[in-house]
């Protein structure tokens, strides 16, 4: 699973890099100023708590407490769904404010990046529900908690990708969008030692 996560690092890394590279290039249409920080910070908090639930589910299973494990597994899946709900709401909100992948560059890069992340979260939720039902028909028990551990690794990975997206794209992006384009770029150029 770590190999898969290593590869996914490249996957999301490229998505985020493309978004950063294209920052400030959109000519027309809404850009970072459309981002609604309070709601997204709540959804970030929800995703963090789902990571906590995931870990509790895993430790419950390892200690053989099936009831606890099932409860936290369901909790993780539900929190995940709440996060997806926020995303859907945010996309709908953007759509009627005129931001779709078609309108401008920011729309394309931002929505497709968060879209791919949302799809990963959805796959995670599906996986969690399958595990949840598997605990009932005896396929998942204390013995093979490794299955749940792998799902846990995947879920935490999806969470830390969101941490990066939230930090870099939402906060740094939305923080007085215009004048930061040069700074982020210069910072990168300075690091790379290019004049």
């Amino acid at each position: 699973m770590w190999a898969f996560l290593g590869s996914d690092v490249l996957f999301f890394g490229t998505l985020i890099a493309t978004h950063l590279v294209y920052r400030g290039q959109s000519v027309s249409g809404p850009t970072e100023n459309i981002l609604d920080i309070p709601i997204t910070s709540i959804s970030t908090f929800v995703l963090l708590m789902s990571s906590l639930a995931m870990v509790l589910a895993l430790s419950g299973l390892q200690r053989g407490k099936m009831g606890e494990a099932r409860f936290w597994l369901a909790a993780t899946a539900l929190l995940g769904s709440v996060f997806i709900g926020f995303q859907m709401y945010e996309f709908a909100e953007f759509a009627n404010e005129g931001l779709t992948p078609r309108t401008n560059l920011f729309g394309s890069t931002f929505l497709i990046m968060t879209g791919f992340h949302g799809t990963h979260v959805a796959i995670g939720i599906l996986w969690l529900w399958s595990l949840f039902f598997a605990t009932f028909n005896g396929k998942i028990h204390q013995g093979n908690s490794l299955e749940v551990e792998i799902a846990g690794l995947y879920w935490h990975f999806v969470d830390i990708v969101w941490i990066v997206i939230f930090g870099v794209v939402y906060l740094v992006g939305a923080y007085g969008a215009e004048e930061h384009v040069e700074e982020a770029g210069h910072a990168a150029a300075a690091i790379f030692g290019i004049g």
Binding site: S7, P101, G107
Partner: peptide
């Protein structure tokens, strides 16, 4: 392979979105 293919997958995904759903990467 596992570290080089994701950038290609993303470039192709961008191109697919460009061609099918006319985003403008």
């Amino acid at each position: 392979i596992i570290f080089a293919f994701p950038p290609l997958t993303i470039a192709l995904a961008f191109l697919t979105f460009d061609r099918f759903f006319d985003t403008n990467f």
